[in-house]
């Protein structure tokens, strides 16, 4: 169902973080992050201070969405990899498990070949974790989280957000 919420629990978050942290070191990359196809950032590893990751997540998702549509227009299923080459930094964008986007930012300390190779391997691991995450997301929230904190939200809680 299109309205299915995406729920990320501590256990999967830690696993994802471990995989992308290791992947970053194997790729010799500056920054790696994982974004869902709707533009929400799931996890990140690396030199985050200098980059607006929220904007980057949204734009990466827009980029992938537009490219997917372009692929279908010319009769391709997808373009599995997007690569943007800059003067200093390069962006390698790939889709993992058909549902999330892996973005790798790297400079001259690494190479496209190395990034492609490592990303391919890391993607399989991530896909397995994401499968579990999706299954848990589809479960009723109470069962998955040991009680949903959101069922308890009061009108007052919501009004408080808009108090100023």
């Amino acid at each position: 169902m299109a309205g299915q919420d995406l729920v990320l629990h501590e256990e999967e978050f830690n696993k994802i973080r471990d995989v992308i942290t290791r992947l970053r070191s194997e790729c010799n990359a500056k920054l790696i992050f994982l974004v869902d196809k709707n533009g929400q950032q799931i996890a990140a590893s690396g030199e985050l201070e200098s980059i607006d990751t929220t904007a980057l997540a949204s734009l990466a998702a827009g980029n992938v969405a537009a490219t997917d549509s372009l692929a279908r227009l010319i009769g391709e299923k997808e373009f599995s990899i997007l690569f943007h080459e800059g003067e200093r930094d390069n962006l390698h964008i790939s889709v993992v498990g058909g549902r999330v986007i892996l973005v790798v930012i790297f400079d001259e300390r690494s190479s496209l070949g190395l990034v492609r190779l490592r990303v391919k391997k890391g993607s399989n691991e991530l896909a397995t974790i994401l499968d579990v995450m999706m299954k848990k997301s589809a479960m009723p929230r109470k069962a998955a989280a040991g009680g949903s904190p959101f069922a308890e939200i009061t009108d007052e809680d919501i009004d408080k957000l808009f108090s100023d």
């Binding site: 299109a2 309205g3 299915q4 919420d5 995406l6 729920v7 990320l8 629990h9 501590e10 978050f13 830690n14 869902d36 709707n38 929400q40 799931i42 989280a145 959101f150």
Partner: peptide, 11 residues
């Protein structure tokens, strides 16, 4: 599709 991140405690 709301994204609920229990690890970062974000909606």
């Amino acid at each position: 599709m709301t994204f609920i991140n229990y690890a970062a405690r974000e909606i």
